[in-house]
Design a protein around this nucleic acid. Structure first.
Lengths: 214, 214
DNA sequence: CAGGCGACTATACGTGGGTATAGTTTGCTT
DNA sequence: AAGCAAACTATACCCACGTATAGTCGCCTG
């Protein structure tokens, strides 16, 4: 545990923020209450307001802290040998919060950062690729990012499906092995994909003149 | 538009249920209000209670209806030539509701059904696979199901990343093309996966005695 | 016509919880 | 020592919203 230097040592403001991170992650924004957060942090209701102003602002502070922490971790990781990033185990205490935030439509900076990272990676990988992808790297990166994060966002369901606790070491291990298998085995052959694309192309022609957006 | 035979023709109960589906999908369970649902359905607050008893029961009725509809669609699809299922465009009006429900931890039957379908598919595909997967089909299916659904659950972020509206025809088209590309190109080579697995195996030995759950 | 029942409305109740304000303690500067 | 600003508490306000109750209307059956 690198972070968390004993809750006693933290300033009240930091304790409130951490409590909020936990409550928002555990219950979601709506169900979390300022009173509950204050109690967990061991402070009065008023102090929360004093430091953060409003529930909404408190959430934004949590977001900001998350982004800062992620940046720090990211830079730390850049100096050391990568060793393959773990899309699920990253920053343990923030996992639930992050999953909630993403599911509820927040945490844009986080998602977008992930897309950017993946985009660079993909653009590089595309160079040593025989065929030409018909979708830009950014779009593919967005899809891949969503897929990677989905395991946290839908962790409750994944846990039920796999029969393990994703917070446990065994769960992480099993999930990683499943991921390795899925990531290293395409779900479709290039031929199947090409066939499906052909169908799309044909359908597209039919729709071309008949405008039907929205 | 196969469903929706003019809201006027529906019974009040059905109109309430549809309004609830919409409100829950649009705002989530907590933020949705019975009053808002009643207004959308064009009925009084009391009638909602008369028909469904409580907010929670109303949500359960929505879930049930969703599952029934899905079953019906599924059976319909079974009789016709498949043509490749679209994991995002399925049952338009329910997409948002389903995404919310999944993200908030509900809709277990739906997810589990998806896992079962994928499991059968994988078990069959495994037979014509050279190597032996070290994770059971069910676990892999759970991972794949989560990944497929993530595009709906995180649609807001995916839309931002891809720069399209996923409800539009163009958005669907672009998303499908991205999916085809991702599905038909593994993110890792089997060698890379094997190397990562080796790390896991080694790490596992190290952690065996030093207990560090949580 | 009686009577009964389901669909439906109007209104009230209670409270959880975000917000606001006034007051108290603590610690630092001059 | 004075004084003031920040940290912190206690308490009150207020309203949105889920829940509850009482009542009306229309239709069906005997």
């Amino acid at each position: 545990m690198t972070t968390a230097p004993d809750p006693e040592d933290l300033t009240a403001r930091a304790r409130i923020r951490d409590a909020a991170l936990w409550h928002f992650g555990e219950h979601g924004y709506e169900r979390a209450t300022i009173r509950g957060i204050a109690e967990t942090a061991g402070v009065s209701l008023g102090l929360v307001r004093h430091h953060f102003g409003s529930k909404q602002a408190l959430r934004e502070a949590c977001d900001e802290h998350l982004v800062r922490t992620m940046h720090r971790l990211h830079e730390e990781a850049a100096t050391r040998p990568p060793g393959g990033l773990n899309p699920v185990a990253m920053m343990g205490p923030y996992r639930r919060y992050l999953a909630r935030a993403l599911a509820e439509g927040w945490a844009e900076p986080f998602f977008d950062e992930m897309v950017r990272i993946g985009e660079r990676w993909l653009a590089q990988a595309d160079e040593s690729r025989p065929d030409v992808p018909d979708v830009d790297p950014r779009s593919r990166s967005a899809v891949i990012a969503a897929m990677a994060l989905s395991l946290s966002v839908l962790s409750k369901h994944v846990e039920r499906g796999m029969g393990v606790d994703l917070d446990s070491v065994e769960g992480q291990d099993k999930l990683l092995r499943a991921l390795l298998d899925v990531y290293s085995h395409p779900l479709m052959t290039p031929e199947e994909a090409a066939a499906a694309r052909a169908v799309l192309d044909r359908g597209h022609g039919q729709q071309a003149d008949r405008r039907r957006g929205e």
